[in-house]
């Protein structure tokens, strides 16, 4: 039996993501399928928010899992969580597609999440306790962001979901560059304070990554 054909070696649906990544690195398709089940909904949501068109988002999602398949051996758990790595990968690949001309042209097309048949249910994670903590954290982050002034929200979301520089955001929104920088800095500071306080209250250890500045 090859690694590609093997079943999840743990035979344990609660195997953590890091263990699954190790199995993917060895060529275990079942481990990749398990990671897909756990994360595809969230990653597809990110791609869809960036790219708008379901076809583009699906292509980006395929790119992401191909990259995970090819590069799982390079994932270093000491440099951050699998979840954060996947999120960063999803944003990066979706924005790469957004920058391509064909996608950019299509980006203006109307996308309605509420009416889309693509709308689905949140993916299930296998550890109910961890899932509850993650869900609670996500909800808290969303509420925190919704509580920010509109200009701050817009600047932050444009930077994240469209990959624009602050200078580009300034031109897009017709705001002075200094104002854009103030909005982004202030928004991130508020987010950090709120999430840190929340994590302290729920004993969820903050995880950070160690990628170098670009």
């Amino acid at each position: 039996m090859t690694a590609r054909d093997s079943e999840l070696s743990t035979n344990d649906e609660t195997a953590d993501d890091g263990a699954l990544m190790q199995q993917v690195a060895q060529g275990c398709e079942a481990a990749l399928a398990e990671l897909y089940d756990r994360h595809s909904g969230r990653l597809y949501g990110i791609c869809l928010k960036i790219l708008r068109r379901p076809a583009d988002a699906q292509a980006a999602l395929s790119d992401i899992f191909y990259e995970i398949w090819r590069r799982a051996d390079r994932f270093n758990p000491e440099r951050g969580q699998v979840r954060t790595y996947f999120t960063t990968l999803a944003r990066s690949r979706a924005i790469d597609r957004l920058r391509s001309d064909s996608t950019r042209t299509n980006h203006e097309r109307e996308y309605s999440r509420e009416s889309s048949e693509e709308k689905g249910q949140r993916s299930q994670t296998h550890d109910p306790v961890q899932a509850a903590i993650i869900d609670e954290t996500m909800q808290f982050v969303r509420e925190t962001l919704r509580g920010l002034p509109e200009d701050q929200q817009t600047c932050l979301e444009t930077a994240y979901f469209e990959g624009l520089t602050q200078q580009e955001i300034s031109a897009r929104l017709g705001l002075p560059l200094g104002t854009v920088k103030t909005h982004i800095r202030g928004g991130l500071e508020k987010l950090r304070q709120a999430v840190s306080a929340f994590e302290a209250g729920t004993h969820l250890e903050p995880k950070v990554t160690t990628n170098k500045p670009r």
């Binding site: 595809s40 909904g41 597809y44 949501g45 990110i46 954060t84 999440r113 689905g120 993916s123």
Partner: peptide, 13 residues
């Protein structure tokens, strides 16, 4: 910055 990803709702592909 990566927390901003959480503003997108999960959607099943």
């Amino acid at each position: 910055f990566s927390q901003l990803a959480e503003t997108s709702e999960p959607v099943d592909p």
